[in-house]
Design a protein around this nucleic acid. Structure first.
Lengths: 151, 151
DNA sequence: CATACATATCATATGATCATGACGAAATCA
DNA sequence: TGATTTCGTCATGATCATATGATATGTATG
């Protein structure tokens, strides 16, 4: 469903959402925390900062933070910079123009199942995916290391 | 949502479903009917024949036909040879293992919207997308040409 | 049996996504 | 000011989906 890229973006944002929002997290820390390529994630985070989802700071002590709190950031804001829902997705058969008045044979049935998917991304907040317990891999928080003690 | 390839597959099957099922349609006719690359569509049709969705016949008068009637062919049968629903799709965050007992934060909410999508493909029959009127592009039926008169 | 026809198969090209590496630019601090 | 740290940007490579082209194989027919 999601491309690898926007999957990284979503996981990165969830990762940031679990950190105290007032201190930036290095891109490399997010990358190792998620177990994804650091250089690639940097670019993803940069895109997210251009979109205003995260805020970046350079220099020592810099890094990335969520711009808005998790309960005010939608999944769509995170994902759409990479996988936009274009009108083509709304037609199962890939027709550019497939409205309600001149639909393809699949139009109505497809909308019925696919609209909720779009709504899911537009209406679900990052905070709703945080569920404190349980998630081993994605919730892996920064532990002890050099950072944090040094400032 | 669907890859180009399985979109072609679906459109090709819908095209075949509109032809009399006892006479084969050439791959090239399907391709021009849909306006998609002929060589590529051949491969797609060949895959569908390996999967038993369509039946192929070689030589003069040969071509492709639906193996089963449209009301006994599901969308999943057409689409899954190209875009299989693997367990990875069931986790929004791409986790290999994300069951009901050890879920990621998105698990339940995501299943609620995505299961219906899978069900749609598994339960919808090709016949249901045929709606005789309306569809200009995909329903374009073979008209008059050389074929048909010559046999 | 020879020819035409249509699918089957293989080899190659193109483009997008995913990924890596090197260098530049801003911020901090001694 | 100069060294370090961190993001920003550009250049390049790897991989996969998509697409094209050529040839082989099977089938019908005169």
């Amino acid at each position: 469903m999601l491309s690898k890229t926007s999957e990284y973006a979503l996981r990165a944002v969830l990762f940031l959402a679990r950190q105290p929002r007032d201190l930036p997290v290095r891109a490399s820390d997010v990358a190792t925390g998620l177990g994804v390529p650091a250089n690639y994630l940097s670019k993803v985070l940069h895109t997210l900062s251009r979109e205003g989802v995260v805020t970046s700071e350079r220099g020592p002590g810099g890094g990335f933070r969520l711009t808005r709190p998790p309960h005010r950031t939608t999944l769509a804001q995170v994902v759409e910079p990479f996988d936009a829902f274009n009108s083509r997705d709304l037609c199962l058969l890939g027709r550019r123009r497939c409205h309600d008045d001149k639909p393809c044979g699949a139009h109505e049935r497809w909308r019925e199942v696919f609209d909720p998917v779009i709504d899911f991304f537009r209406e679900t907040m990052v905070a709703e995916l945080l569920e404190p317990g349980g998630e081993a891999l994605e919730s892996l928080t920064l532990e002890g290391g050099a950072r944090g003690t040094e400032r």
